[in-house]
């Protein structure tokens, strides 16, 4: 960046610095999909993690439309996160959890956002720390009755690394 500055107009430098200042604190890989006009964004805090370092997960639902968006879930589960490696399921957030069995409604007013923060401790479904390598994280929005979140389902997906 230092080599660029002498060649940039002052106004562009201001915008660049402002853009960097306003960059989200969670600066890892991100991806998004949509449902009913609502933006569903998955973001991790880092692109790469050391062994056993917690992976901070953020799922943000944003309604940029001018009408309210309502989602109905068959249980208290409003999302799921799946970690895969080369197509094989390594970890699933809902594993080891049960959910209240009443229909649940989530309504986002125009302009409203809702954020869910979760964490993966790098343990697989057997409780073992996973090895270094390339991984994928998929976020699933289970609004369909009977939907069992699984790898390959539609939803934002990001890649990240675990390094030694």
């Amino acid at each position: 960046m230092c080599s660029l500055l002498p060649h940039m107009r002052a106004s562009n430098v201001v915008f660049l610095i402002a853009g960097l200042c306003l960059a989200p604190a969670v600066a890892g890989p991100a991806a998004h999909t949509g449902d009913q006009g609502v933006r569903i964004e998955l973001r991790l805090n880092k692109p790469a993690y050391t062994a056993t370092e917690p992976v901070e997960i953020m799922l943000m639902l944003s309604n940029p439309t001018s009408t309210a968006a309502t989602f109905q879930f068959p249980t208290g589960q409003m999302f799921d996160f799946l970690v895969t490696r080369q197509g094989k399921l390594i970890w699933q957030w809902s594993y080891g959890r049960a959910f209240t069995q009443a229909f649940t409604r989530l309504t986002l007013s125009p302009g409203e956002s809702r954020v869910f923060n979760e964490r993966w401790d790098q343990r697989d479904v057997q409780g073992r720390y996973v090895p270094a390598g390339e991984y994928e994280m998929l976020a699933v929005f289970p609004t369909d009755v009977g939907l069992v979140p699984r790898a390959g389902a539609d939803g934002p997906q990001v890649r990240f690394q675990i390094v030694n």
């Binding site: 208290g76 049960a98 959910f99 209240t100």
Partner: peptide
């Protein structure tokens, strides 16, 4: 045994 969102960990159950 469940949080406010309706998620309930097995060990809490």
């Amino acid at each position: 045994v469940c949080n406010t969102s309706g998620a309930c960990a097995n060990s809490d159950i």
